[in-house]
Design a binder for these strands. Structure first.
Length: 272
DNA sequence: CCAGTATCCTGCAGGC
DNA sequence: TGCCTGCAGGATACTG
């Protein structure tokens, strides 16, 4: 579900509401997720600690508390729900962090492609998922970095955009949008795109991510922020999910292709 | 090295 | 109505 703009929207919501608050205890059952979930371990680490900050790297969230960090990835279907303790718990609520003042932070994830994993001090720098991540489009100089990372690669540029080791945070929606915006054919290999056009692509990536954050992310079906708000970028999508519909620039029906196992919509006229 | 595929899991839409 | 199939916002471990 969540790509960078959705994760950033969640990060901002969490930062507003949990930083400075103390954890009473943690509930949940051990369950298999992308990494095994161990609520007991998380509870031992978080109990009586206060959250001190919420960071994001690519699509990962890092909730700092006490002497470590809770590393969270929301996979395809993960959600954070911040609510009163009295409210009913949704199915697939795997982990609940009870806070002072009658509120709790719940991790809900039907498909269990996400995870929450406690990283003690020092573990963060060694975590394989994090060390593998490429530049974050909102941190680094993407216009300089993206051409450098893509220009010698034989893989379709669509697959390059989804490769978190090169640039971290782009998923299927925003890869599709950025390529449409930049006028680049998704199947074109990185090495067959001029540095000029790769720079344009980098600018489009930043532009589409910024615009989506501005709208609170994209709600296709079930994305909500930590505060329960939908995102309104879906109405601005020009390519993702629009195969067969007219291109907003030239009116030609958008085509559909599957690249690297992921569906892509693109305009055979505007995208070269 | 690569590119491509299978895999983890549930929910939902669409076809019959 | 009910059953079946395919597909979904992700990441990684295989295969060839």
């Amino acid at each position: 579900m969540p790509e960078l703009p959705e994760v950033e929207t969640i990060r901002r919501g969490l930062a507003r509401h949990i930083v400075g608050r103390r954890v009473l205890r943690v509930e949940g059952r051990a369950v298999q997720m992308r990494r095994p979930l161990d609520p007991v371990q998380i509870g031992e680490a978080l109990q009586d600690q206060r959250f001190t900050g919420v960071r994001r790297r690519g699509k990962y969230l890092l909730l700092d508390a006490g002497s470590g960090t809770l590393l969270v990835h929301l996979g395809m279907s993960g959600q954070f729900v911040l609510t009163d303790t009295a409210a009913d718990r949704a199915p697939h609520t795997h982990c609940v962090i009870l806070l002072e003042a009658g509120q709790e932070l719940r991790l809900v994830d039907p498909r269990r492609f996400g995870f929450a994993d406690w990283l003690a001090e020092g573990d963060e720098a060694a975590d394989a998922s994090l060390t593998r991540l490429g530049v974050d489009p909102l941190d680094g100089d993407l216009v300089a970095h993206l051409p450098c990372a893509y220009k010698c690669r034989r893989v379709p540029v669509k697959s390059l955009l989804l490769d978190q080791r090169l640039v971290a945070g782009i998923g299927n929606i925003y890869a599709t949008e950025a390529l449409w915006m930049a006028g680049i054919r998704p199947l074109r290999r990185g090495r067959d795109i001029s540095v000029d056009r790769l720079e344009t692509l980098a600018k489009c990536v930043v532009e589409v991510l910024d615009a989506a954050i501005e709208q609170g992310g994209t709600t296709l079906k079930d994305f909500v922020s930590a505060e329960g708000a939908q995102g309104y970028f879906a109405v601005r999508l020009q390519a993702y999910g629009r195969e067969g519909l007219p291109c907003a620039r030239c009116e030609r029906p958008l085509k559909r292709a599957v690249i690297g196992g992921r569906a892509t919509a693109w305009c055979s006229r505007c995208q070269t």
